[in-house]
Design a protein around this nucleic acid. Sequence first.
DNA 1: GTTCTTAAAA
Length: 639
Amino acid sequence: MHHWNCKLYIYISEMKQASAFCLNTALRSYLKSGNPSLALNHYLEASHKHGVTPDKFTIPSLLKLFLHLRYPVKRGESLQSFSLKNGFLYDLFIATGLIEFYLKHAASDSAHKLFVEMPKRDVVLFTAMICGLSENGFRKAALDLFFEMKEERIEPTAMTIAAVFSIISQCKNIDLGRMLHGFCLRKGFLNKEDAVLQTSLMDMYGKCGNLVYANNVFDKITERNLVSWNSIINAYVSHGSLYLALKLFQEMIFQGWLRPKTSTFTSILNACGLTTDLLKGRELHAYITKCIDADYTEFDKLVLCNALIDMYFKTGDCDSAQTFFDEMQMKNVVTWTTMISGQGSHGLTRRALETFHRMIASGIKPDRVAFVAILTACNHGGLVKEGRQIFDSMENEFNVSPEMIHYVCMVDLYSRRGLLEEAHILIKDMPFEPSKEIWGALLSCCRSYRNVQLGEYAAKMALELDKFDAGTYVLLSRLYVESGRLEEFSKVRLAMQQLGLRPIRAFSWVEIKNKVYKFTVGERFNESSKEMYEFLESVSLKMEEAGIQRDVSNVGHDFSKREKVGALCGHTEKLALAFAMVKFGSMKNLRIGKNLRVCIDCHEVFKFVSLVYEKEIVLKDPNRYHRFIRGHCTCNDFW
DNA sequence: GTTCTTAAAA
């Protein structure tokens, strides 16, 4: 391609005379060859030599070039005034190009201004505007525009609908999605072999949480490309069907005959990390190493390395993550952030702080995500002073304005240490209105420290922001129960029921030899149930003999002490542990996961089992990893 | 000649 362009260049530069038409054609072919700076240089040289000025066919190509060369907004603006002077600003091709250029630079105002000035608008212009608006986060405006099209009687094309599906998958409006699906069927848009629309439709269903529909669409795509596969894999991952996602990845290679690329690998490494399956992770690592060739850019490789570090942390192999990190030549802010959050999630708080300071020393400026990572790490370690210092440095030293999420970290940091008043003061002093997550963080710790008064207030504020958040009711009711306020407890439960809200059901899983076993509360349907409960009882007995206190505050009030301990045996993480111990007692390492925070009593039991049965157990909850070795946990009993 | 789908870290 490049070679051919050289010939074209020689041809044009040797011409005695060249028309604007001729140069435009040359410019477009350069554009296709993917070397924008060369294209621009050659064009400028030739147009200068032949004394040719850009005409209305040149501008769109120039805009494309400027976009590729990451030229600033100003360059687009000068092309706009040039077009205005020459009387072709309202040409649809030029306006579309300008609007695309502006929206890629987040200059939505300039784009919008031009858009409303246009005397005539067509479907392409609308589509470009819809796309750009949604990329800039103006989903509502983009959807409004789509309906405005209808009023102006402009028919959407498959491209328009694909863009709208992408918006729908962000705002999760599945009803609108189904409606448009019907529209596509009526128009025959889905009969074409073009995979783009089908993929965007499938992606929409996946993102809206309907895996069945996503699958149906996927089955009908005839020409599946990398994006289609990636999309369906991500749908399985977000649904939690991790091993099926890994299976799809293999199908893609062996049945789809496609060579995976960086984005596929990052999705699949993410899936692998979520399974906490280290063996699978190592296998993937080896495979990826084999696949990397000259087609991969340096940036691709960096992205892959970052995803690999993340995978090693998530599968519990902190040493491999560290070694791999140390050996990396090129590191960006994501590399460091991945490292910090990985160390944080495994309770290596001091190491995370070290990494954070090494990052700064190496000349990389922390961004908003890096701050979330380090503040979260401080949370897990309960390092209030260090966390506060870093929080203050955000604005003062690094010019990063704290956002809601950083405040959530700080409120959490204070409250977890029982500094509830300090947390409350911070909330009062916030420069914007606190979100329900802020109140939720405070409420959750009011529960741990049994501060009914502040807890009630936090719950009230959270419910004002979202009356239908089941989590708030659950936390408040637990606060009441654990503080002995049974009447209030019943009231909250009743209020919940009347709103038709149900608490999230707890479940745990254990993954042994490539199979996942899932457990829900008090489950007794399993063939091994009897042995499992016997095991848990014997552990209880041994703990009693060892004089270990059980934390029963979690259980309902109208039980005897013995019954309470019995009820605790129904906790899902204990069931997963018991199952693994009964069925696979010889395994030295166990990996268990839970969808909610681990309870105090279960944590004690895990520690005890790791000591008495000489096991190493990794327990993953939604926030972090616990690693139990010889009666201790890496979280130091603070989580 | 202009518009479209997926995408690493919290």
